[in-house]
Design a protein around this nucleic acid. Structure first.
Lengths: 337, 337
DNA sequence: ATGAAAGCGCTAACAG
DNA sequence: CTGTTAGCGCTTTCAT
């Protein structure tokens, strides 16, 4: 069985005490150069590695951070996680990733599981279903560092990072209008989410600025957030059966954009009859047919920023009281058609 | 600051010894019903949760498993990870996910990092670049349980699970032949990988069975495995500039399939001139244009099976010497065109 | 400059 | 049935 060398082993071999070895290894100022060299050399030789579990127990720090996202298979989140990873790894932290599948119950269970695993902090993009965040607030009040990304909430005062959802939506809708579309439907995610509302505002503002009356009957909420394809197809079908059929659809959610493309394809609509524009982070969104204009978020970067904020929180010697909410630009890509 | 209740706290409050409390909590047979009730009730009241780190130190078990995959953003792997998670979570393990980006160096670093973090076992799909697996063999010999999935290797004797790559490739190539294609090129991943070779065999066998001569000049290896788009585009361009241009391409790798679609699109080829069939697990592969026939692996299931094998290895009281390699069926989907 | 001892939270002999 | 003790690997007073 694998049996790594411990400080005790080194101490024994070198006829020193464990404390001396410990200090030597950590370059303590009180240890003679000679002893240090001796210890370091021997440690190298037996391939000594400090035991992170023992360290955790001692320091009450686990050097791990918990990540809670709705769905791993969602490109936006897997990209963001790659970004988180890239930083966390080099700073000596590892990540424990959990998915909520947009269920409040799973979200709560995951968060508690992570807290109990004594993660040093939490990175979370909240579930679409959740409206009561007391379970998070309690943990946060108890001192667990938390950073929100993408789907942020107001209830808790801490670092947050998200996209400029308003502007992203505005640009997309404006492009549809410029292409001559005037009956623009909106397919949106659960109204619980911050991003949903910001994108809705962008949609409305673009209409207003272009003197197009807002028509609430053109709005469809998909509360399952694209996890349920049928819900989206029904909404699309419904829109296309209206007496005054929309000539474009703006989709304010990544997964729903994809589902909408699929629905239009299965209903045999082509992009010339019904234009679509939506938020989408899939790495193949430019290859889809029917094609669409899309708003891409800086997912990787967002992950990096979020974890940097969290590490600042975790590693700060003094409690932080000034929090920042970073808003990242989005990229807009016009459909080729 | 968050300060969870410990066994000692409970013992103190109830005027018992820590060991009694520990035993009561774990339903030890030697404890009176009365005491048990008392302890459990109080534990409930103060919301006692056992400290997993202390447990790990004591038991030399971390209840965590390490996952090493080439790329998280690759659909196949994110799906497999979702499968792993679904089982691991309910069995009380958490997962530490790392990516190699198909680099040997990162693979080695990640594996060591995980081993040092004292994961109880390792789930790995090897990097395309790696040919020397001694670093894994050493750990395995030292007793670290390892299960290989998808990209498996021969050098280490343990549980493995992968797809029927031979048959998957055979079916895909056969479908191209049935569609009247006779000059079928092969775009393949690094020849280091088990799956590459199995898929190559399937390709060749389908040709032979249909009396089509094998022409080595129709084969292109993309050693960067689709991580480098340009490499794939160059290969495709090259193929299409041959004097006797292929009429179809079979792609033996997920990422390369996508890159090939993108290359054909940017080169303005349509699926009628050049048919494509490839391995692909993207959840939007059916919406791509140019469209393709595709072989889909049971990624989620594979993840589940892999982690179950690993848990068997980890939790077995006696050393296991009989290992199994599971081969999962693939699904074939014909292109609509 | 080095060592002894205590303790992080938990469990498992070993006693009683 | 319950308590005492020791120890997992490490750091950290407090001696010396």
């Amino acid at each position: 069985m694998y049996k790594p060398a411990t400080i005790k082993d080194i101490a024994l071999a070198l006829h020193l005490s464990p404390s001396t070895v410990s200090r030597a290894l950590r370059d303590g100022y009180e240890i003679s150069e000679e002893t240090k060299k001796l210890v370091v050399a021997y440690a190298e030789k037996v391939n000594y590695k400090s035991n992170p579990i023992a360290l955790s127990l001692k320091n009450k720090r686990s050097y791990s951070i918990g990540i809670v996202v709705p769905k791993l298979a969602n490109s936006f989140f897997s990209q963001a996680i790659a970004g988180i990873e890239s930083i966390a790894y080099e700073r000596g932290y590892h990540t424990i990733i959990t998915q909520t599948h947009d269920s409040t119950e799973r979200e709560r269970a995951n968060v508690h599981h992570l807290a109990q695993r004594s993660v040093d902090g939490l990175l979370i993009s909240v579930s679409a279903e959740t409206s009561d965040f007391n379970f998070l607030k309690t943990l946060h009040d108890d001192g667990l560092p938390i950073v929100f990304f993408d789907r942020i909430i107001d209830e808790i005062d801490t670092f947050k990072v998200t996209s400029d959802n308003f502007k992203g939506a505005y640009n997309a809708v404006e492009s549809l209008i410029k292409a001559g579309k005037h009956k623009i439907a909106l397919l949106s995610n659960s109204p619980h989410l911050s991003i949903t509302n910001e994108r809705l505002s962008g949609y409305m503002k673009a209409l207003v600025d272009n003197h197009i009356p807002f028509r609430s009957e053109l709005i469809r909420n998909c509360n399952k957030g694209g996890n349920d394809y049928q819900e989206v197809e029904d909404a699309v079908k419904d829109l296309l059966h209206m007496p005054e059929k929309p000539d474009a659809i703006f989709i304010s959610s990544d997964r729903i954009s994809i589902s909408c493309v699929r629905a239009l394809k299965s209903l045999n609509f082509n992009p010339k009859e019904i234009a679509i524009a939506g938020f989408a982070n899939s790495d193949v969104v430019d290859l889809l047919y029917p094609s669409l204009s899309y708003v891409k978020q800086k997912s990787f970067e967002m992950g990096q920023i979020a974890v940097e904020m969290l590490l600042k929180l975790i590693e700060s010697k003094y409690p932080i009281t000034e929090f920042e909410t970073r808003i990242l630009d989005t990229e807009f890509h016009l459909s080729p058609l």
